[in-house]
Nucleic acid binder design. Structure first.
Lengths: 228, 228
DNA sequence: CCCTCCTGGTGCTATTATCGCACCTCAAGT
DNA sequence: ACTTGAGGTGCGATAATAGCACCAGGAGGG
């Protein structure tokens, strides 16, 4: 959980961000002393850092003196790929309703895949609660594999030839969460390389024919609306 | 747009956060030089700060060298009041479907009200696109007024007596956005003070009787499920 | 074709912000 | 009442940072 990055550049900023992440990881709230221990800095440092973070509404302290995540972070994240998300959301909703499964938009960040938009189906009693911000290696799970589909093979990359791959989608079963079935298709970016994927996740086997058709349709629709 | 806060405590952290916010405010991407001018620091400082922010995935640079907001911010915001949001979301969905309007959960942050969860109705072709992270004074709009309903009156506060207020909800029309009607009810916290409100926003007049019943029901349901 | 001007990016040292100490207050447990 | 642990504050030595000079490359104009 803790960032293994030792340091590089701005130590104070690094410490501040680590404090912020520590606070984010403990929704119940953290005291200054605990926080200092977790981050590995002295109490007064944590105190000063928290003061600055508080001024920017990134953290806030309750009446008990404990610090929790502040509301400034949502103001930051609302502008994150807002173009992509606003374009995708209606199609994700349609996809979720059509398949009865949780629909998601996932994009590439370095070597990881991160979900940035999730729509859960309305009429189904039980469904997978996929979370926005969920990060995992791009090499596992349908969402990640679909992103790789649209990219030229990297050196040393092993890539299995599956039925779905030839038709432009990826399917997985239990790779990220046992019992979860996934199916996703790449969304090509401006330069032809895919940087994102749309897909669905369900608690049981998916009808691959029908589901892949819906997913591919959603991916194509999003790609068309994407700003160049 | 820029934070007027001069500085207090950790200057480097402060600069870093201002850089982060500047990047967030420019989705199209910013160069190091522009960024340095906007934030008011020297180029090399901005460069170093950006390096550290990049290591934490809070910003990322495209191939053109311009910096954009990174995906780390969604990982932060996903844990923000995740308890409240996960409890509220199903009820917001029900509320949105029942009223055919956009349902939202808004909480208090200092003197502002900030929306932290929004669910848009599915079957309605046109609806209000209310954004998560939207911040406005707590003294305007149904969402803010509803929060004030559950709190003891502050010194110097003027509070109009309306029909809705006696029944435990607030209604507004065009206060935040001309043409938008809103109706919201407070969600009491553990200590009896309300720190949040749930409500709906529509593009036209609301059936106050039916809508207020749905909104009050949702508020009560959420309150019941809230952790003590 | 060369030359200029803009950009991003990088070492290095004086200066400056930061670290961490000692100290204070307060509340709760012994 | 005493002790222990918490949050909060001021101030000096130290170490991190700011900003300089400098390099490289591409766009555009002479």
């Amino acid at each position: 959980m803790p960032d293994d990055t030792p340091a590089a550049g701005a130590k104070t900023l690094d410490n501040g961000i680590r404090v912020l992440k520590a606070v984010a990881a403990h929704p119940q709230g953290l005291g200054v002393t605990e926080l200092a221990r977790l981050v590995g800095v002295h109490r007064t440092v944590a105190y000063r850092l928290l003061g600055t973070l508080t001024q920017h509404s990134l953290v806030s302290q309750g009446k008990d003196g404990h610090y929790r995540l502040g509301l400034g972070v949502v103001e930051l994240s609302m502008s994150l790929r807002s173009d992509l998300r606003s374009v995708a959301r209606p199609h994700l909703r349609d996809l979720a309703e059509a398949t009865g499964a949780t629909a998601h938009l996932t994009i590439l960040d370095g070597e990881d895949a991160v979900s940035i938009a999730v729509v859960e189906p309305g009429n189904v009693g039980v469904h997978v609660a996929y979370r926005v911000g969920f990060r995992h290696s791009v090499t596992v799970g349908a969402a990640g594999l679909a992103i790789l589909l649209g990219r030229p093979p990297q050196p040393g990359e092993r890539r299995e030839v599956t039925e779905g791959r030839r038709r432009g989608f990826a399917a997985s079963q239990g790779e990220l969460q046992s019992g979860a079935w996934g199916l996703a298709a790449p969304v090509s970016g401006a330069d032809g390389e895919s940087v994102a994927s749309v897909g669905v996740i369900a608690l049981g086997p998916l009808d691959e024919a029908a589901t892949s058709a819906s997913v591919l349709r959603a991916a194509e629709a999003i790609r068309r609306e994407l700003p160049l």
